[in-house]
């Protein structure tokens, strides 16, 4: 399967060439120390096609995703700069898009962002000038129509050739509406979509069937979000406390069934089986995986090897 290439994004090349793509995730530090970013990036270089750089995730102040993304790119790995609309109005959004592209960023993940209520600055004034779908429309307009939201034209060489990403969550509510929200993102012009952590495979399969039936997987690349369990405690915590994440008892029992020091290994095995299903079941419509090994970046090399995701194609 090949599609028209719109950008210089490595991720786009991998996806368009029909390879099963792999993206990672890296959270910038809560400091101005750039070395930490470079250190984390070293575990990812060569193991993923591009890496998401989170934008003040959970509304906790961290190094900017654009700056951390550039530090990662210096290590030889393209970034998927995340951008939330919580902290920027349309003036800052468009300005940052121009700046990011000028500095060599090729992928942008458009998100609304977590509310600041539970972040480290709940006193902040939020912006939410637009939502994630509005952000997708904004990037698309700048890239394809060469226009700012004001209607102002961008010269042909001044259009940001950005590969547009966003997130989809099949596990939030109302269940039956989730696919329609995702369809809106596709309609808005998103190129690739990464899901939340998937554990509930039956619900995910049902969701993807709808996506395929609606033709969405022909218009955008759907990637599946994977976070291996580090241990039984984490699995139980996610089952009980994280809204919108459904952890089946089957996985809990598998982790219970092995000694504590083997739980991480078992968690990775479970994740590897999920990935194997995505890889070998084209009818699911999944074109790659998004690995979220947050604060566990050093395990990425071992994990991708276990899942037979390396070597990554050089295109």
């Amino acid at each position: 399967m090949t599609r028209e290439i719109k950008t210089a994004s490595n991720l786009e090349k991998v996806l368009a060439s029909g390879n099963f793509a792999v993206t990672g995730e890296l959270g910038p530090p809560r400091s101005a120390d750039g070395h930490e970013v470079a250190e984390k990036a070293k575990h990812l270089v060569g193991n993923v096609d591009s890496v998401n750089i989170t934008d003040n995730q959970t509304a906790v102040v961290r190094m900017s995703s654009m700056a951390a993304g550039l530090l990662v790119q210096r290590e030889g790995l393209q970034c998927n700069m995340q951008m939330v609309t919580r902290d920027r109005n349309r003036i800052a959004i468009q300005s940052d898009i121009m700046g990011a592209y000028a500095l060599g960023i090729h992928n942008l993940l458009c998100l609304t962002g977590d509310h600041q209520k539970f972040g480290d600055h709940p006193q902040a004034k939020n912006v939410f000038d637009m939502d994630a779908i509005g952000l997708i429309q904004t990037v698309k307009s700048m890239r394809d129509d060469g226009r700012l939201l004001s209607g102002q034209e961008l010269p042909p060489e001044g259009r940001p050739k950005i590969f547009i990403g966003s997130a989809y969550n099949p596990f939030a509510d109302p269940e039956k509406y989730r696919i329609h929200r995702t369809a809106k993102k596709v309609e808005a012009g998103v190129d690739f979509l990464q899901s939340q952590c998937i554990y509930d495979m039956p619900r995910f399969r049902a969701f993807m069937k709808e996506a395929v039936d609606m033709g969405l997987t022909e218009k955008a690349y759907f990637m599946a979000g994977i976070t291996p369990f580090k241990n039984l405690g984490m699995a139980r915590y996610m089952q009980k406390n994280v809204p919108g994440i459904l952890v089946p008892d089957e996985f809990i029992n598998r982790l219970k069934g092995v000694p504590k020091e083997k739980q991480a290994e078992e968690g990775m095995k479970i994740a590897a089986e999920q990935i194997e299903e995505f890889k070998t079941t084209p009818s699911l419509g999944i074109k790659g995986v998004h690995l979220m090994l947050i604060e566990w970046e050093h395990m990425v090399p071992e994990f991708v090897k276990l899942c037979k995701l390396t070597p990554r194609p050089k295109l």
Partner: peptide, 21 residues
Amino acid sequence: CSKSIMNGPCGGSSNGVCEIS
């Protein structure tokens, strides 16, 4: 809507309540 979004619900919607509370 806590985030005044125009194309909701966002991924924080769970059991009819908002992620913030």
